[in-house]
C-alpha cells in the first residue's frame, strides 16, 4: 500500500512538472533542456533554508516558487537573443552549470552526497513525510497546476502566447509584446516547477544533484512529447509513462544498472518513433518543429 501511495505521489509531482514544461514547450514552442534544474532550484531552496537555517516551510515554499519563476523567466529574456535551436544548447549549458554548482558547493548543497534532514511540511497535525499526507499535498499541487494550465489555455494571455509561437511578427503587429508574453508563461512554468521541487524535498527529506540532472530533463521532454504538447491530457499521460516505465522494467527482474540502460534506450526509441510517426504525441495539439 505504501509502495502504491509513493508511486501516486511521484506521479502527481511529475504531472505538475510536465504541466509546467508544457507551458514552455507546448504553448511557446521553445524547447528547454533545463526543466530539471528549475525543479532542483525549488528543492534546494527549500532544503538549504529549512535544513541549514531552520526557516519555516511557510516561508521556504513561497521562496522556492519565486526563485523558480525568476530563474525560468530569465530564460525568456535569453530566448530573445538566440535562435530556437541555440536556446536548446544554452539551456543545456545552464543545466550543466546548475549540476556542477550543486555538486561543487558542498558546504551549502551537501555536494554529490546530497542534503539530508529536510523537515517535512506540517499542517493540521499531518506531516508530508507520511505517504497519505504527502500524496494529498502533491495531488493538490497537480490539480492546481492543471487548473492554471486550463485557465491559461482559454485566457487572452494563453492565446497571445500561442500566437507568438506561430508568428512573433503577427503578435507584434497586434500591438502585443511577444517577449513579455513569453516571460509570463515562463514565470508561471517556473513557479509550478519550483513548488514541485519544494514539495518533493519536504516529502523525501533528502535531495541530491543526481535527481535533477540532464537525464531527468531529457526524460521529462520525452514523456511530454509522448503524452502530447499543448493539451491537458498530455502531461498526465506523459507522467504515467515517466513513473510507470522504470517500475515495469524493475518488475522484469533486470539488474539495476542494466535496467537503467534499458529504461533510457526505450525512452530514446519512443522519442524517435513518435517524432517520425506521431509528432503530436497521444493527445497533443502541437508538434515540435
Amino acid at each position: 500500500m505504501i509502495y502504491l501511495l509513493e508511486i501516486l505521489n511521484q506521479l502527481c509531482i511529475y504531472v505538475a512538472l510536465l504541466v509546467a514544461m508544457d507551458l514552455i514547450l507546448g504553448k511557446t514552442g521553445l524547447l528547454s533542456a533545463m526543466q530539471a534544474s528549475i525543479y532542483g532550484t525549488g528543492a534546494y531552496a527549500t532544503g538549504i533554508l529549512s535544513a541549514h537555517l531552520g526557516i519555516s516551510m511557510w516561508i521556504t515554499l513561497p521562496i522556492s516558487i519565486m526563485l523558480g519563476a525568476v530563474v525560468c523567466s530569465s530564460l525568456a529574456l535569453i530566448s530573445i537573443r538566440v535562435s530556437d535551436e541555440a536556446l536548446v544548447l544554452v539551456t543545456l549549458a545552464f543545466q550543466m552549470i546548475w549540476s556542477d554548482l550543486a555538486n561543487n558547493l558542498g558546504s551549502l548543497t551537501g555536494g554529490p552526497m546530497g542534503l539530508r534532514g529536510i523537515p517535512p511540511f506540517r499542517l493540521l497535525g499531518f506531516e508530508s513525510d507520511n505517504p497519505i499526507a504527502g500524496l494529498v499535498l502533491s495531488a493538490t499541487l497537480a490539480c492546481l497546476a492543471l487548473l492554471v494550465a486550463a485557465k491559461t489555455d482559454i485566457s487572452p494571455l494563453g492565446r497571445a502566447i500561442k500566437a507568438a509561437r506561430e508568428s512573433e511578427l503577427f503578435l507584434s503587429s497586434c500591438g502585443r509584446n511577444a517577449a513579455l508574453m513569453k516571460a509570463q508563461a515562463f514565470a508561471l512554468a517556473g513557479a509550478i516547477a519550483g513548488a514541485a521541487g519544494s514539495i518533493y524535498a519536504m516529502h523525501v527529506g533528502y535531495i541530491s544533484p543526481g535527481s535533477f540532472d540532464v537525464a531527468e530533463s531529457i526524460r521529462m521532454i520525452t514523456a511530454l512529447v509522448l503524452g502530447g504538447l499543448d493539451s491537458l491530457w498530455g502531461p498526465i499521460a506523459g507522467a504515467v509513462l515517466l513513473v510507470g516505465l522504470p517500475e515495469a522494467v524493475r518488475f522484469l527482474g533486470i539488474s539495476g544498472s542494466t535496467a537503467a540502460n534499458i529504461d533510457q534506450m526505450v525512452y530514446a526509441l519512443i522519442l524517435i518513433g513518435l517524432v517520425a510517426l506521431r509528432p503530436k504525441g497521444l493527445w497533443g495539439r502541437y508538434a515540435i518543429r
Binding site: 520525452t222 542494466t258 540502460n261 530514446a268 522519442l271 517524432v275
Partner: peptide
C-alpha cells in the same frame, strides 16, 4: 527525417535520442 523537411530543432532532438540510445546500448 530530412526528406520530411523537418527543422534543425527536430533533427537535434532526434540526434539527442540516438545518442541516448547508443550510449546506453554500449552500457548494456
Amino acid at each position: 527525417f530530412r526528406r520530411k523537411a523537418v527543422s534543425g530543432g527536430v533533427l537535434l532532438v532526434i540526434g539527442w535520442a540516438a545518442y541516448m540510445f547508443l550510449e546506453n546500448f554500449l552500457g548494456v
